[in-house]
């Protein structure tokens, strides 16, 4: 943990695991590639962790950097990622009670492929915003560069709130395939903010969400 904070710190995983009581949150998860799933995550609000980091008032954004280890992640070389996966949230988004510091799912610790040992879940944004395997949290005053936004800014915006009225260039975002384990997908209408509008729409008052997609 570093950047605009009183004191940069390293947390060991046990202290993060035990810092606050773990609660189960059942969230809809909507991928930018138009599939969705309902997942029971285990964790506690990211805001609790951020308070423990004690950021300075000048910190406006929080950046998450993921583990970048080609020994454990042999496909990194062909991924087109030049550095560690980077994601970020505006401070008020990160402090929203829905944003979950996530340590498990289905009552088990996170498996590697789901972002072990620590990830965030931001349920009103497309899945790639919910960074996995976070090893560094950095508080900054400007919008941080984020991996997919850098790779293709016209496809993946910084905000990437789930929004059925802004299509991805290659497919519509009006509907989603709800994956349920049965062979045929359930087609669902995609909801603005993935159905969490009551909780988060106010964060974007006055913003043109077609421009800040």
């Amino acid at each position: 943990m570093e950047g605009l904070v009183k004191q940069p710190r390293t947390f060991d995983i046990d202290s993060i695991l035990r810092y606050r009581p773990i609660e189960e949150r059942v969230y809809r998860f909507r991928c930018v590639e138009a599939w969705s799933m309902v997942v029971p995550w285990d964790g506690y609000p990211l805001s609790e962790f951020i308070k423990a980091c004690d950021p300075l008032p000048s910190a406006k954004y929080v950046q998450f950097l993921s583990l970048h280890d080609s020994k454990q992640m042999p496909e990194l070389g062909s991924s087109g990622f030049s550095g560690p996966y980077s994601e970020g949230l505006r401070m008020d988004e990160a402090m929203n009670p829905l944003t979950l510091l996530t340590l498990g799912l289905y009552g088990e610790v996170l498996p590697n492929q789901d972002g072990a040992p620590i990830r965030v879940i931001v349920p009103w944004k497309y899945g790639f915003k919910s960074a996995k395997s976070i090893v560094k949290v950095r508080f900054v005053d400007k919008q941080p560069p984020t991996t997919w936004n850098n790779m293709a800014p016209d496809e993946y915006g910084f905000y990437s709130n789930v929004n059925p009225s802004v299509d991805h260039p290659r497919w519509s975002q009006k509907t989603e395939r709800r994956l349920t384990g049965s062979f045929f997908p359930q087609i669902k209408q995609t909801l603005p903010f993935n159905g969490y509008g009551n909780e988060v729409a106010a964060l974007y008052n006055g913003m043109d969400l077609r421009k800040y997609y």
Partner: peptide
């Protein structure tokens, strides 16, 4: 080529 996301070879 047109359907894969950037960076995918």
């Amino acid at each position: 080529w047109w359907l894969v996301k950037p960076g995918v070879l």
